[in-house]
Simulated assay, not measured.
Amino acid sequence: MTRLRLGFVALNDAAALIAAGAKGFFAAEGLEVDLVREVSWATIRDKVDVGALHGAHMLAPMALAATAGAELRPLVAPMALNLNGPAVTLSSRLAGVIDPAASAQGLAALIARRRDEGASGITLAVVFPHSTHNYLLRDWLSRAGIDPDRDVRINVAPPARMTELLVSGVVEGICVTEPWGAAAVTAGAGRTAVRASQLWPRTPDKVLALAEAWAAENPEVVQALVRAILRGAAWAERNRPELAALLSEPAYVAAPAAVIAPSLEDMIFHAGEANAPDPAHAAWLLAQMVRWNHLPVGVDAAAIAARVYRPDLYRAARDSLAAG
């Protein structure tokens, strides 16, 4: 048995990894995997970088940013873990004073009104600067004429703290992957303003990220790992009621199954080649990183996308599963 440590954050889209462990798919591939729950994305990134984790459930833009920079070890993403999942949830206080049917435009009007009155601005939260959540939120705001860097404050917080921040009034809106937006709605603290799938159908979110050098040195282990997680993703797609109960366990997402179950409805774990790492997704994310000055203009986005997103590794694992 090959022993591995994989990190994850308490979110619905860790489902493929969690199912691969709970349903014996790792063991069937000769892998003994310790799933390590981490609190924040920064911790996930840093532990993969120093080798404390062999790989992780990771924000797709985080993997791209790590490889684009000079400070961190390059990463590869041999598979995507899900599509859809994020949502923008505004506090019930805001939802009570803006039009829910046109929430971005209503938010723009409220910001202008507060500015004219000299009142405090709007504070929103995302899970990490390099995240689909940040870029979707910024794009949604900018479509309504809101400058994300001038008209609002965008803070960063761990996903599992988002509900608490909205309930306590520290922030007035969050963009986070489920179930934490749903948890805020259930608590009466928020209302869903827009789902990622409404802005971009089949929104990319998380990938399996591995250190590039380690993946190159361990090709057979990588293939076994991807096969096991593909089986976990397929199981998650087909068994959502049982998945909700599994994710609700204290070692995993640790939210009530009654909250998790409906929050799974919009998510795609495996259907329609959802696990293929799509270079078009990487291209959009990199374009947003340049747009918001997270990467320099002129960066070779195509080279970064091709280096990180590895559909060749995905196809090899998928095809060996089909042949078996």
Rank of each mutant, 00 (worst) to 15 (best):
K47M: 14
A209M: 06
G21N: 08
L165K: 07
V221P: 04
L247A: 00
A251L: 13
P201V: 01
A196T: 09
A183R: 02
R153C: 04
A19W: 03
A189I: 02
R240D: 06
I260G: 08
L90N: 08
S92H: 08
P256R: 04
A276M: 02
A125T: 11
H54A: 08
L199H: 00
H133K: 04
L243A: 05
R37T: 11
V176I: 00
V33W: 08
Q105K: 08
A56L: 12
P262W: 00
A306T: 00
E117G: 02
E32V: 06
V299I: 13
L59C: 06
A187H: 11
A209R: 06
L75A: 05
Y314T: 10
E71Q: 00
L75P: 03
A251R: 15
P74K: 07
D300W: 01
E242M: 09
E117N: 07
H294Q: 12
G30L: 02
D49W: 07
P279R: 00
R240F: 14
A14S: 10
E29R: 11
R202D: 15
P241F: 11
A236H: 01
A322C: 09
D116M: 11
F26G: 09
A303M: 12
A63E: 03
H54E: 12
A66S: 07
A216V: 03
P279L: 00
G121R: 06
M58N: 09
E220Y: 14
E29F: 12
A14P: 09
P279Y: 01
G7S: 11
A322E: 12
P158W: 08
W140A: 10
P148K: 01
P148I: 01
A215M: 08
G232F: 12
M62R: 12
E178I: 05
R150Y: 04
I98Y: 09
L141D: 05
N275G: 04
E249N: 06
P74H: 01
A63T: 04
W180M: 00
W200A: 05
M62Y: 14
T186Q: 13
I174T: 02
V185D: 02
D116R: 12
A306E: 06
M1F: 10
L6M: 11
P129V: 07
G173S: 02
V290Y: 14
N275T: 07
D116T: 02
P219M: 02
L90K: 08
R143K: 11
G106Q: 11
